[in-house]
Every structure is written in C-alpha cells, then in structure tokens.
Amino acid sequence: MARLYIEKSGLQTSMQDLGRIAHADLGVPLSGPMDEMAFRLANHLMRRSSNEACIELYMGNVVLQFEAACQLVLTGAEVECRCENKLYTTNQIIGIPEGGRLIIPRFSSGQWAYLAMNGVFFTQTSMGSKSFYPGISEKSRFTQGNELAYQPERKPIPPSFLKIKSGNSGSSRMIDAFRGPSFYLLAQFQQEMLQNQPFTLSRNQNRMGIQLEEKVPHALAEMISTPTYPGTVQLTPAGTLIVLMKDAQVTGGYHRVLQLPVSSMSQLAQLRPGATFRFQLH
C-alpha cells in the first residue's frame, strides 16, 4: 500500500463513487459525481468497475505527490497536467513514477474532473458509499496535507494512441429534458418559456444544485413536500429555476417542472456561470 499526499487541495476536492443507493427514505442524498459521464469514462479507461471511487476535482489547481508508481487518467474538464516535465491532456493515460508529483493547473474549460487509477484508492465507506457528504463521511472535502492510501495494480495498461475527444469543447448547448409533474400546471406561455428561452447558469451553484438566472413568473399554489431527484428542476415561488444536482435533498416543497437525465446533468455541470443553453424537451 502506498500513500498519496495532497500538496495543494483545490477548492472542492472529494472522493466520489456512484453514491448512496439505499437510505433515500431516511433523507440521505445520493451524492456521486457531478459529471457522471466523465466519471464512468475515467473508470472505463482504467479498466475498473463503474462504481470504483475516483477523486473529483473542481476547477483544478491541485498538486498531488505519489509514493509509489501508478497509472492515472483524468477525465471531464479540459486541462493539461504535468508530471516530471511530461504533459498529459484530458483522457490520456498518465504514468506516475515512484515519488512523482502531478501538477493539475486551473482547468481551461469545464468545471469538474475525475482522477481514476489503475488500482484502488482506500477511503472509508460510510452508509454504503465512499462519496463525501458533510456529516456522513469523515471529511466533506480534502484539504492541504491530507493523505490517501492507494494500491496500484501490478499489471500496467498499455499506452494507447487512440485519442479520445473530450466532450466539453464546443459541446452542444441543447440540454435534453423531460416534463416534470408540475409542468402541466403551468400556463402555455410559461411552458413555452421553458422550451424556447435561453437560460444562463448563475454563480449560485454547488454540489447540491445550480440556480439559473432567468425567472419564470407563475402563480402556482404552494405545495407540500414531494420527492426530489438528482436532475429535478425546481421552480421556486419567486420564479427561480434550480437544477438539483447530486448532493440535493431527497424531498422538496417547490414545484418540479422538468427532470433531466444523467447526461444532461453532466453537460450542465461542466458549463461555467454565465454560459447559456436551452432545454430540449422530449
């Protein structure tokens, strides 16, 4: 077993697997990767099972030191990582030598990235998952000086010259969405706003949800709390739209106007505040 030392932690670095499947009826959020597509790709490239825990990074600016040699891959956001004067792009297999230092600068595009290993990271499982969540996991994020145990796989993955195009650059700004239960309660012009109007991501976003700038004024009656899922788009009494993400609470008292599939949540997670998109309703 070897150790990974976090020399520079970045803003919001955490462990994520596919989340806490059980216990939603005890109020436990799912958690898991903000960009699940990139997370799955990372484990796929490292030939791991799809639920293997990866390190999730937000915006970059992370430096890691590895005690033992290992292979890694970084997926999701666009960034050029450096290790021992070699440069590695997103989705490329990174060879870390013994004592190697991996420098991940600020992402050039996108917001979330996944670091998977040809091997295993050892972190605590709490309530059936390694995903960090405040109050349930030991930590809610990594900080400078933290250490993490890992076991590199003995058999290396042969380097591939196949270049996997990253999904972020010039990604389509159409976001697939399905109608939520309250969609049908809206007036036609409000339904059309949701379908036709461009929406802008606000700064008000975290692992729980992303608030949008444009408002959809409405006169819907207040409602009692109902289940909410990752991907549920809520409409607050003030007309604000909130896209619920992976750490969102499991019930909510706001109207549920749309429901996004995992692929749409992944797309939105990578768009920075100020970016615009439209919902493509199915």
Partner: peptide, 26 residues
C-alpha cells in the same frame, strides 16, 4: 404500497423516495 413494492419489485427499483403523499422510485 411501499412494503408491497419492497417485497415484489426489489429487482426493478434502484432507489425509493417518499414524500407525504407521493412514493417515488428510480
């Protein structure tokens, strides 16, 4: 109904959610 689903639909249901008067399942 929730208990019935737990007994009969366990292999279909990924995650069960419950509000006051809404039962949800992924």
């Amino acid at each position: 109904v929730k208990n019935w689903l737990a007994r009969h639909w366990a292999e279909k249901i990924h995650r069960m959610y419950q509000g006051y008067q809404v039962l949800g399942m992924q």
